[in-house]
Amino acid sequence: MTAEEILTELQASFPGLAKSDAQVKDYPAWTVPAQSVRAVCERLRSKFSFDYLDVITAVDWSGQVNPKGYPQSLGQQGSEAAGQPDSQTAQPSSLIPHPSSFPQGRPAAQPAGARDIFELVYLVSALSTGVKICLRCEIPRKEPAAPSLYGIFMAADWQEREVYDLFGIHFEGHPNLKRILTPETQAGYPLRKDYEHVSDRYD
């Protein structure tokens, strides 16, 4: 059974499911609404013998950061920039900015193609038939959340913890969602594109 046939069969029960325009090269990519990710995966596993979860990861589509680490919006958005400590007067206590001090929504002057979303990427495969599918699911950057795949694929356990750790996306239904790579005391989520670079003595 090819990926197209599976897609048409699944679209009957999940109307939000569609072929994605942004293809991951060589992989058939579908877009899934966030709330039906778990149901789609469950169906894929039980009915189409998709037994292997390769990857769960996320992409922050809010635009390229400056290679130096400063968000591009900083110069243009005076109100947000004022909230950030000046690089010269940075106090030790503000070296690690609290997540609440991050600019949540992107300003109007975004780079082209930038959207105010996180994109979750799931790669699932059926080892017996060799069919591989890339599921893409867009969620808002404000209070990002998605259903957890824990229980369907145990491989989701640590990968979801990793995504939570690096992006701050909450996986609902994950029994042990806590930081995994960075320390528990870490503030902020390092792979978000709005991560503020605060000058320190190494600059």
Binding site: Y27, D54, V55, V59, Q64, G113
Partner: peptide
């Protein structure tokens, strides 16, 4: 665009998911 390539490394399935703008 985006690309995913994976290979059989010494310890298993090593994959790189690359996104370019």
């Amino acid at each position: 665009g985006q690309a995913y390539a994976h290979i059989e490394a010494s310890r298993g399935d090593l994959g790189f998911y690359a996104v370019s703008d």
